[in-house]
């Protein structure tokens, strides 16, 4: 079987939220002689990217598919990384967390899973994270992006969330070095909301959020 077929079979399994079937595809590829590096760079990453496109174009894709895309990709990548002959090149660094007052972790977990499989280093700050902690962690870790998840309207729009992160970046002269990405249910209901909270970008779901974050990393590094 060629890699395109593996990618198709893998993504069909993910789309059907069938983890054993997806892992079977990976194991078959390993069995057929593909290296762990090839599995990650030629199967998992293209599969995640193709899934991002599919999810972006398909408004009917569901949360379970997003969750499985991230979980399976992260699991496979983690297992393959252990077998790499040399450490992979990391494309950038992100600090991520749920906004102050927000205790939801699902969206963040989906984004983290996808980012890890795309070779982005992720620092997970957890839930209920203050603006100051976001900025301090981004500086301490040389992160290009702060990703803020907010599932409630008041945590998305409130003064202690993205708005305060923007203010702190401005105050410390970091706006060119660190970008802000936001996501969560309120942004789906008002696609212009991200601008009102001072973010640079937003995404409608966790999988496409990873794509948006990679774009921001590239902008900062350009």
């Amino acid at each position: 079987m060629n890699l395109t077929k593996y990618i198709e079979s893998y993504n069909e399994a993910v789309f059907e939220t069938d983890k054993p079937a997806a892992l079977a595809v990976v194991n078959q590829a390993l069995h057929d002689g593909y290296s762990p590096e090839e599995i990650v760079f030629k199967l998992v990453i293209p599969a995640v990217e193709s899934m991002m496109e599919r999810i972006e174009k398909d408004p009917d894709s569901n949360l379970a598919q997003h969750f499985m895309t991230a979980q399976i990709a992260a699991d496979v990548t983690e297992k393959m990384l252990e077998k790499f002959s040399t450490p992979p090149q990391i494309i950038g660094k992100v600090v991520i967390g749920a906004a102050a007052g927000d205790l939801h972790s699902l969206g963040k977990r989906i984004v983290i899973g996808c980012l890890k499989s795309l070779m982005v280093d992720v620092v997970d700050l957890g839930i209920n994270v203050s603006a100051e902690r976001f900025v301090d962690a981004a500086v301490a870790n040389n992160a290009q992006v702060i990703a803020v998840s907010a599932m409630m309207v008041h945590t998305a729009t409130g003064e202690h969330g993205s708005l305060e992160i923007r203010a702190l970046l401005k105050q410390r002269g970091l706006e060119d070095k660190i970008k802000i990405a936001v996501g969560g249910a309120p942004y789906r209901f008002d696609p212009k909301l991200y601008q009102k909270v001072g973010a640079d970008a937003w995404a409608a779901d966790g999988v496409t959020a990873a794509k948006v974050i990679v774009q921001l990393i590239n902008e900062v590094k350009a």
């Binding site: 939220t17 949360l63 379970a64 969750f67 499985m68 979980q71 972790s105 699902l106």
Partner: peptide, 12 residues
């Protein structure tokens, strides 16, 4: 148990 933990149990 949290949405992510529930999704994990429900789906996997």
């Amino acid at each position: 148990m949290g949405m992510d933990k529930w999704m994990e149990l429900l789906l996997m």
